[in-house]
Design a protein around this nucleic acid. Structure first.
Lengths: 156, 156
DNA sequence: CGCAGATTGTTTGACAGCAGATGATTTGCA
DNA sequence: TGCAAATCATCTGCTGTCAAACAATCTGCG
């Protein structure tokens, strides 16, 4: 494309179509970045980080866990899990007790305050998802979910 | 599932199904992380980073650009673009000349060596995409591409 | 012209994510 | 039993990303 305007750079709404169209990997990364940004923003407003939310959610669902287990199931690095649990403990949302059968590990337990906080945070999720995935119809969201599920089958 | 073994934590293949299933945002982030990891690995083998590849691709397609333009079109932070262009220039794949009409900006230009390197790098992309998206059929990849396209319409 | 404000490229500082090392503890095996 | 190897939580250092500050330059408006 020749540049019709005077300055070589300016005034070219090219928007480089090839990338998002041709390279599925790049489109995926861009979409993920946009969504992650939105999630962080919402989590920031709410005062409960995404990782902390996930930990509370899992503890509530499956009962006390070691940090190791939380790490593996939630795909959060175990050294990051340390600070996530630190924050949660400091706010009184979880307790860290030594596991008597294996004193190397903790039994991380959600507290009543944690359950209340979780319930409160859960209520904002549907609206968040609705906002973020607004360009897609419910059917399309299901499609996307299915496709990502297949893609993640091989996740390391 | 009850835990058959003695220790409370061990041997529970729970795998916390709710997350990837219910929360589309998390599934998207996981898939993106896996794909980005694969892309980085391939780029590492090839010696040409993902960002550098994109810059060469765009310069080849639309001609000389300022770093600012490259930044915006490729969604790479402009402070990151500095080092990307530094590396490319050091390897002789691009030239950085001052734009005579606006001496604040550069006119970044791809060199012949850059074009050769780009052509060589391009050949490995189909195989990479094939490997990475192997769990999806061609039809499903098209679906995914379309869905992501719609989702990115609102990208900030 | 002359100056306030915007823009371009760059540097700096903060921060998340990850690999590797460490100390405490448990497990496996001779 | 005793000891080597594995495991859990933690800490440290490195890398990549991003926001904010900065100097040089351009633009718009009097």
């Amino acid at each position: 494309m020749a540049t019709p305007t005077k300055t070589a750079d300016r005034a070219r709404p090219t928007y480089f179509p090839q990338l998002a169209a041709e390279r599925l990997d790049i489109a995926l990364c861009r979409a993920s970045a946009a969504v992650a940004r939105a999630a962080d923003a919402r989590a920031g407003e709410e005062g409960l980080g995404v990782g902390q939310h996930l930990v509370l959610q899992m503890l509530d669902a499956v009962g006390p866990c070691s940090q190791q287990t939380l790490s593996e199931e939630l795909r959060i690095d175990r050294s990051v899990m340390v600070s996530v649990c630190d924050d949660l403990e400091q706010e009184g949302l979880v307790r860290r007790e030594r596991n008597p059968r294996d004193r190397r590990s903790y039994a991380v337990t959600i507290t009543d305050a944690g359950r209340r906080r979780l319930a409160q945070a859960q209520t904002s999720i549907p609206a968040f998802l609705e906002d973020t995935f607004q360009p897609l119809t419910p059917d399309e969201r299901d499609q996307l979910s299915t496709l990502l599920g297949k893609l993640l089958k091989i996740d390391t």
